[in-house]
Design a protein around this nucleic acid. Sequence first.
DNA 1: ACAAAAGTGTTGTTATTACACCCATGC
DNA 2: GCATGGGTGTAATAACAACACTTTTGT
Lengths: 241, 241
Amino acid sequence: MPAPMANVSERRFDPPSLAISTVVFALSAGAGNSADDESTADGATLWLPLVRRIREPYRNTWALPGGPIAWNESLEAAARRNLHETTDMTPNYLEQLYAFGGTDRSPDLRVVSIVYWALVRPVEADKAVTGDNVRWFRTGNLPELAFDHRDIVDYAVWRLRNKMEYSRIAQNFLGDTFTLAQLREVYESVIGRRLDPANFRRQMLASNTLIETDQVLAGARHRPPRLYRYKPELAQGSTAS
Amino acid sequence: MPAPMANVSERRFDPPSLAISTVVFALSAGAGNSADDESTADGATLWLPLVRRIREPYRNTWALPGGPIAWNESLEAAARRNLHETTDMTPNYLEQLYAFGGTDRSPDLRVVSIVYWALVRPVEADKAVTGDNVRWFRTGNLPELAFDHRDIVDYAVWRLRNKMEYSRIAQNFLGDTFTLAQLREVYESVIGRRLDPANFRRQMLASNTLIETDQVLAGARHRPPRLYRYKPELAQGSTAS
DNA sequence: ACAAAAGTGTTGTTATTACACCCATGC
DNA sequence: GCATGGGTGTAATAACAACACTTTTGT
């Protein structure tokens, strides 16, 4: 119960308060329950869920899911709990993005936001109950966002693209097994550029992170592609504390 | 004046409070005013300043310089101000490292630390008035640190090494002009590995970030090396807000 | 048979590495 | 002259990119 008798103008001079927000990414498959799904044939697209603010400032404006941090939970736990409370999702991957603490982020309160970014698989993305107050948007076609959330999203997209090039986070968009074409599609839709199937295949196999299963994916009118899975990883998650 | 009548045991259940800390790096030249300067002939070494805690918990233990965030300053400004207050230094480079918010970081208070890391040139490093409460330590030979500061330092070193390989932060350890050997020494002492002088030279020149001056550095008993300077950079600093 | 994507081969280009060798200075 | 690092040359290797070509399925 901090400073119970403080009114708004006095609160302006309190030390900054803390909050958590999360930028969640999913690929198009799981975002089918959106209104304007004009998914072009040339590959999947990136989507993220936003929530409508129900109070001032920026009332009715779309914003990143977020909330306060409880006294007995870590930052990551706060992000995870909050995400579940607001969107019913449990992320496959969760990593701290940045702490945003400019003095002019909010018109009245001074709040420092510790922002996480997350990846969810299609199955998980479908769990998000969308409606008037929660909706998926494509990263390329966002509405006006509250606060500096637009900058935050841009930074998160940049980070995702970046990390895609040197790590194996792509697996967090996919199910347990997948074809190399599916894996390639993840890469292509995130970095926004076509990749040579032949070279991509060799790079992935050479990276020694894949296990070839003995199954193939039949049904299409061409040679059935082999299914792969990722090797169990030693340690992927985020940084300590 | 938040919650003025709260005692210690009640404070445990307050929402986390905020603080800023900074890991400052300098190369050996500027750290000569240290006690155990046994700088080996084979290149410079990394140093960082620590301050002695004057209150519980961890009283008398060395810790990262840090402090609270004022209501009207950004996180970066808080780091900069605090660094100046505690060590009289103004960093050449300053970037956010990570927000540490584990629940067990401190025995009593719950505090979230937003940590920055900084680079200072030798001239600036000399401004730090060392004494009983501020001292430079080599990163390879640190004392026991308060809280989780040891983990934080390790992470900062990792980040510095990493960033050294794909960016031009090395310049923040050097003066305006420098020889390629000096630049190489910075790289070598940070990443802890010898580099081929010939190849290093070509890589640096090929990167197209250096300007050749018309001066050389005479005085040594070998061919005088040419002095270079960095091209004025478009934008280097940290991320917004 | 044919279309379409899976999968393999091959070649040219570029980046990296190792190391030989010449250059210019102080002593 | 000679030791010392500055600076250039070069060849072997590895990584990457482009693209031709063969394989296997569904229709």
